[in-house]
Simulated scan of single mutants.
Amino acid sequence: MSGDKGFIAPALTDLLERWLTTDSALGRISENTRKAYQTDLLVFFAFLSQHMENVRGVEMLRDISVTDMRSFMAHERGRGIAARSLARELSAVKSFYRWFSERDDFDATAVMMTRAPKFHNKLPRPLAKDAAKAVLETAALQSTEPWVQARDVAVLTLLYGCGLRISEALSLTFADVPLSDKLYIKGKGDKERLVPVIPTAQDAVAQYLRLCPFPGEKEHALFRGVRGGALSPRQVQKTLADVRMQLGLPSSVTPHAMRHSFATHLLNAGGDLRAIQELLGHASLASTEAYTAVDTARLLEVYEKAHPRG
């Protein structure tokens, strides 16, 4: 079953849109989260529309029972939905019901008490320093076009040298260049942070600018595809996939792994965990801990410095 709107009463899609619009207007969710929530709720509504044949529309949502929720979870597992993805779907459903039950004043315990499936977080695997250097050097060999070579090196240098997410690097515009020694980045949830830009990254972007054949207005995407449009994340992923094959690196070497490596190498060099949290744009310190592949002794050393005993 998919989240096809053909299965779903218009009143439900209208209600969903009202919730998404409300939370977006209040700044509680980003555009990417909005799209993910919409997809997950449409899947949920489509299931209920077939499962609860005797009840329709908005009333169906109010009448939901523990058994109905168990059926939904079982149905999704039967579709082969992974535990992590199912937990995300359930989180979206609960977020919606939190708003809906407050608005319509009804008991949503059946939904809110549903347990998410357990899954193990896969810790990121950063690259060794020499491997990260080799990735940047080999990225320059993936095209015969000098400007494309410079572009690929510039993007990957921003990921590894500044800890940017791929979406953040590709959201840069001509208004952001020439790069200074610091850059304001709008990350997840539209949260802004100030990121130091190392000279290597400044030079890499400057070299790309000198060679790029596509001039742009300030609002235009800085990094371009070969036809002149905005560079897509898929192309960066493909370039890195080619690089790791040539270097014999594992499939865990992705654009996001470059960011992992930035955090890990910075912490191993003596960086402060909370400072790295700010650089990465993490909401919680726990996220930064998971991001950095340091041994227990190193992490304890950092904590000892941050919280010395009296």
Score class of each variant (00 low, 15 high):
R84K: 14
K122I: 05
R115L: 13
S101A: 14
H75E: 08
R103T: 15
V135M: 06
S95N: 11
M52P: 02
G78T: 03
Y37F: 06
R79S: 07
E59N: 10
D107P: 09
S30T: 09
T109A: 13
E53A: 15
G80F: 02
L42P: 01
S49C: 11
N121L: 12
A110K: 03
R18N: 09
F45S: 00
S24Y: 04
T144C: 05
D107Q: 03
D68A: 07
D130M: 10
D130Q: 12
I64E: 00
M73C: 09
S85A: 14
L41T: 02
R125C: 04
L48R: 01
F100H: 05
H120F: 11
R34M: 06
F119R: 01
S30L: 08
L20H: 00
V55I: 14
F119S: 08
F44P: 01
V55W: 04
H75A: 12
M112Y: 04
L48H: 00
H75V: 04
R88P: 04
R115F: 05
W99M: 02
A134V: 07
D105A: 12
A36N: 10
D105E: 15
E31Q: 14
A25S: 13
T114I: 08
E102Q: 15
R88V: 07
D130Y: 08
R18M: 12
A74H: 01
F72M: 00
A74P: 02
R70Y: 04
S24H: 02
M60K: 12
P117G: 08
H120L: 13
F72D: 00
R28P: 06
P126M: 00
L123Y: 05
K122M: 03
L26S: 10
E76C: 13
M113G: 03
R18C: 09
D68I: 09
M52V: 10
S85V: 09
G78E: 07
L41Q: 04
A116N: 11
E76M: 15
L127S: 13
G27N: 08
K133Q: 15
K94H: 02
K35V: 13
L26Y: 05
M73H: 02
W99T: 05
M69A: 01
R88C: 10
E53L: 06
Q38V: 02
A132I: 02
E59M: 07
H51P: 00
V111R: 02
F44S: 02
V66Q: 10
L26Q: 14
V111W: 00
N121R: 14
S49D: 06
L127G: 11
L127H: 09
S24G: 03
F96K: 01
A82E: 10
S30F: 04
L127Q: 08
V55K: 09
L20M: 03
R62Q: 09
R62D: 01
A82N: 07
A82T: 09
I81T: 15
S24F: 07
R70L: 07
H75N: 10
A83K: 04
G78D: 08
M73L: 15
L61H: 06
R34K: 10
N54Q: 15
M113C: 08
A139P: 06
T138G: 06
V93I: 13
